[in-house]
Design a protein around this nucleic acid. Sequence first.
DNA 1: GAGTGGTCTAGACCACAAT
DNA 2: TTGTGGTCTAGACCACTCC
Lengths: 232, 232
Amino acid sequence: MDHEPLHRRIAGDIERRIASGEWQPGFRIPTEAELMAEYGCARMTVSRAITDLASRALVVRRRRAGTVVAHPPVHSSALVSIPDIQSEVEGRGLTYSHRLMGRIVRPALAEEEMGGRVIELETLHLADDVPFVFERRLIALDVAPDAETADFAAQPPGGWLLANMPWTEAEHRISAVGADRETAAGLGLADGAPCLRLERRTWRDGQGVTQASQIFPGGAYDLVARFSPTKG
Amino acid sequence: MDHEPLHRRIAGDIERRIASGEWQPGFRIPTEAELMAEYGCARMTVSRAITDLASRALVVRRRRAGTVVAHPPVHSSALVSIPDIQSEVEGRGLTYSHRLMGRIVRPALAEEEMGGRVIELETLHLADDVPFVFERRLIALDVAPDAETADFAAQPPGGWLLANMPWTEAEHRISAVGADRETAAGLGLADGAPCLRLERRTWRDGQGVTQASQIFPGGAYDLVARFSPTKG
DNA sequence: GAGTGGTCTAGACCACAAT
DNA sequence: TTGTGGTCTAGACCACTCC
């Protein structure tokens, strides 16, 4: 039953000793030559295992000095799953629908950094006809001129952009806000009810494509991050 | 000036064609044999380049079917910086302090999955003496018996755990809540004010070590995620 | 100078999946 | 069946950096 590649076994062995605390941060792990001898394999195989660990920042390699166990990150980071609303709703076995609540075309403000003209859209996303997310979105018409004639009542802006304007960079901000009047009305909440706000900006080759602010009722949604150093 | 390794150059060339849109999602990129010929190098060099792209989920490799450009992350994920409070405060040039507001030792509830006994701590974190975060935390005494005698008035529980109980797995949940009475009092907010709640659970070798619920005033904090597929 | 990792070669055999 | 990636070998030379 030994189908595990040798380089994974080597990486796993080292990882386990780090996770168990046997090899503390700063500890110098065996050299590649020593590991070759220990496992009876070629140097590339050892090197591949250590390259994998280094790419996950578990170890730091330095010529001449050898490879040492990395110090744990002060600001630890974690992989957070940022949901695509439609997939999320359908993944829960519910029916997705949406309503376009507002649409205007206007000059972009300088601080928006979206070029000359933008289209501003307000969309309500529903799960089984229950309001779920209220979204305000800007799309830069300089970058995505087709957005001006796209039918966002038929296809939600997020889906349209995914199909027509793949991004190369994105930034997400997550914060808590009280629902403003319009949002509260759309989502059927009391004014000021706690909501999770997910702001997303994307760029394509350095040019701003879109900015979206998505508001979830606080009780309705969780963002989950799971991080395991042993699994990358 | 050409000190760039060949495998990076190959990976970079492919990456650029993906980022530019020249190679769309689903496009089958040249086989390893074709890339060997194109770059006049050994197969391992090509393979290393593609392995790197695959590890960043830019492409998907399948035997026989070849390597294709990955579909954009529908459930895109992003590296979110999960703050260590003390570092965060000090990083802003402010003075960090904390107050232990509550401490009890009690049997764990079954649904807490924390073994037999836990210590429950309430800590207020301050920046320049202004309340910043209210934290409720459980620590499993089966796993971390020393926590029962540790002086959490001197060292905040997060720092103590970092030094004494490195974790191997962690899960974060982010949600929005209205401040309850105790939290509102601690943070100097109105009852029900929108707050960002960061819940963190960690495990060590499969055993629950700690659970923390950290409440930030909604206006005081943002979690920022920046993601660039071209930079990993 | 010498020890360490960084890269690369020119093969080889195997595993898997599409046909 | 066969084309593709997955892994591995046994070397080689180079680059960096600590001594």
